[in-house]
Simulated scan of single mutants.
Amino acid sequence: MHIKIGAVGLGRLGRLHAENIAFRISQAELTAVCSIVKEEVDTVKSSWNIPYGYYDFEEMLQNKELNAIVIASSSTEHCRQISQALAAGFHVFCEKPLGVGMEEIRLAQQVVTKHSDKVFQLGFMRRYDTSYAYAKKKIEEGFIGEPILIRCYGLDPVSAINGAIAFAENSGGLFSDMAVHDFDLARWYLNSEANKVSAIGGCYAYQEFARYGDIDNGAALIQFKNNTMGIFYASRTCNHGYHIETEIVGTKGSVRIGTVPYKNLVTITNEQGVTNECVCDFLERFEVAYLNEIQNFVDCIIHNKKPDITVEDGVKSVEIAYAANKSLATGQTVYLD
């Protein structure tokens, strides 16, 4: 059995998803691609020999050869496209975030719940990273006792700042755009929902973000309902590369993932000293995780299973991000129901 997939969005991540489906995912076939950028569609369709290419998402949904849709379009399009694809009878994988407004996110949640016969999976790929999964296993086996605190750094390379500025108007803000991955990890590792959120931050290097009510560096402190704690730092101005670091502290020890964002196991010694190169972006750091999550999506369709990551995970993580945005704007602690 082969799952025939239509992919919408062919930017950096969208193209990686499409390439994985076309060449690396077992029992999957990239049958159609869609983008509002005509050149992206034409290039992928011809060079990879893809049967169908579309410039309009609704037109792609008319293709009854397809079994599933993978959404990697702009965040502002996610909720609408999720709803349309499910209503048209397709299984759906959607990149994070679920959406950029709580009202539309809750409507999308209702649609996903209504179409419970379809597989819906959200793209929190870090859960499919081998190191993060290994850390989860060690925690569940009691190696650090009971988790009491999580510390997360999510630092984007400053080399990507122009793209971040260009996207800022529709990103939903630093916490929604970047820290939402860490908020999901916190819920996963601590087995609890957020209770109260306090956030601070500013435009320390790039005032351009202020035009959109956004920031280039921010931090959040969260207390969870089981009284565990979370410390989160997000930045768009990292000079040494793409730095994703997570530490979970327990009553008997701790576990860290990505303390140094090594590119590989190579150490270079020369006139500049002893150096280790760092990963340059999220595509490089989580290359295997992106592959694993789409494989899981396809496997769930074939075996009629539900993914571990649900629409509720998307809603809860965005709720935390919006609480952080509100705390940043008001200077007040925000309580979540």
Rank of each mutant, 00 (worst) to 15 (best):
L291M: 10
I200Q: 11
Y204Q: 07
I231M: 11
E284D: 11
F167S: 12
W188I: 03
Y189A: 04
C280H: 08
S192H: 08
A194K: 06
S159W: 00
R285S: 12
E208Y: 01
T237G: 00
R285L: 14
E277W: 03
Y189E: 07
G250P: 04
A219F: 08
Y290E: 14
A289T: 10
I231C: 10
R256S: 15
K252R: 14
F175L: 06
Y290R: 09
R236Y: 12
K263T: 01
A179N: 13
K252D: 13
K196W: 07
N191T: 09
H243E: 04
Q272N: 15
Y206H: 15
V180D: 05
S176K: 10
K196C: 13
S176L: 15
A289Y: 09
D216E: 04
V255M: 09
E287M: 05
V274D: 00
F232G: 01
E293C: 12
N292D: 10
Y262G: 08
K263W: 03
T228E: 02
V279W: 03
G230F: 05
I244P: 00
L185Y: 01
L185P: 01
N162P: 00
W188Y: 15
R256M: 13
V260W: 02
S198P: 00
E247I: 12
D184C: 11
N195C: 09
I268S: 10
I244C: 09
R187T: 13
L185K: 05
I215N: 02
D216M: 05
Y212V: 02
